[in-house]
């Protein structure tokens, strides 16, 4: 007698759910509503741990952005690029800048009025739950120092940063606490992004003319390192540009580990998936300077499934 889906044991259904793609969180949510046994499997903390381990890199769910001082940074706001629940209304930040984004949390530099006292402070904010908390003073000093010292884009896993308004890459070596400079492969492009290549090497992305260039840093020994051009993607016909003549495509960010590049033109903001070559328009035309990708696993649990919290 062949088994029905209800007779599949939990270990087996878990194997099935592991293979639902994290960049489309709705699939796991829908599956969790099919029946009670499935809900129990999916919302189990052990399954969530396995799901994260299985997919390793968290998916891109959306982005925040920051601009140069003169351009005026927009209020911190998560723009989603995939289906997620309606966002908690923006917290009443009076004057705050999003500085960075990791592990589903946003680092904000916020005005004192938002914090309660002092001149300004740093806060960590989860835009999906609205949760926020203030960082202790000693952390704040360090962050402020880093903030002034750099950065418009970074590639933290390899400790590499690009400098604001300069065509240069700074590498910080955590183990020997040492800073060094790396010459970029292309001298006069200022809109660039760094990324980690599949083989772990440092990658460099920029647009020149109407093509996107992907370079990889090949290190053969301590002394000898060189940039190797590994891909050229023609953007014509791929990414829409505005009608006026001086419109050009600029690289404004990259999502680490998932191979997605953010490109802006006068027609809007686009994501370009390096692997598939797929392009999606994710926002309208605006001034884009630096995109902070929001990457996180969004899976059913007691905080994302309020009714689960009520009934179990």
């Amino acid at each position: 007698m062949a088994p029905t889906p209800l007779e599949l044991i939990n270990d087996v259904t878990a194997e099935i759910f592991l293979r639902l793609p994290p960049d489309e969180p709705e699939h796991l949510f829908r599956a969790s509503l099919v029946c009670k046994p499935w809900l129990r499997v999916i919302s189990d903390p052990d399954f969530r741990r396995r799901y994260r381990a299985f997919h390793r890199t968290p998916p891109l769910l959306g982005f925040l952005q920051r601009r140069q001082v003169l351009e005026g940074s927009p209020a911190p706001r998560l723009t989603t690029t995939t289906a997620v629940p309606p966002l908690i209304p923006n917290p009443p930040f009076r004057d705050a800048d999003a500085l960075d984004c990791h592990h589903g949390r946003v680092l904000l530099r916020a005005d004192a009025a938002d914090a309660g006292d002092g001149d300004w402070c740093f806060m960590v904010w989860d835009p999906l739950t609205g949760e926020k908390h203030r960082l202790p003073e000693e952390d704040a000093v360090l962050i402020e120092w880093l903030r002034r010292a750099c950065t418009h884009q970074r590639q933290p896993r390899r400790g590499a940063f690009t400098l604001r308004g300069a065509n240069a890459i700074v590498r910080y070596n955590w183990t020997n606490n040492c800073i060094s400079m790396i010459n970029p492969p292309s001298q006069d492009v200022y809109y660039i992004a760094l990324m980690e290549m599949e083989n772990g090497a440092l990658g460099f992305v920029c647009i020149e003319g109407s093509s996107l260039y992907l370079w990889s840093r090949k290190v053969s020994s301590e002394a000898a390192a060189e940039w190797v051009k590994c891909r050229v993607i023609k953007l014509e016909g791929l990414i829409h540009v505005a009608d006026h003549d001086d419109d050009e495509a600029l690289v404004v960010g990259s999502a680490e580990g998932v191979g997605i590049i953010f490109v802006t033109t006068g027609a809007g903001l686009f994501t370009l998936e390096l692997k598939s070559g797929r392009v999606r328009k994710v926002d309208g035309p605006e001034i884009y300077f630096s995109i902070l990708p929001y990457m996180s696993f969004y899976t059913p649990d007691h905080s994302t499934l309020p009714s689960l919290a009520r009934t179990h």
């Binding site: 029905t4 889906p5 209800l6 759910f17 592991l18 639902l20 699939h27 099919v34």
Partner: peptide, 19 residues
């Protein structure tokens, strides 16, 4: 998993032969 993807809970039940 591919059979589940993109379907509503009711459609998943129907597709997979739930009672």
């Amino acid at each position: 998993a591919d059979m589940i993807k993109g379907k509503s809970p009711m459609e998943i039940r129907r597709t997979l032969g739930f009672p």
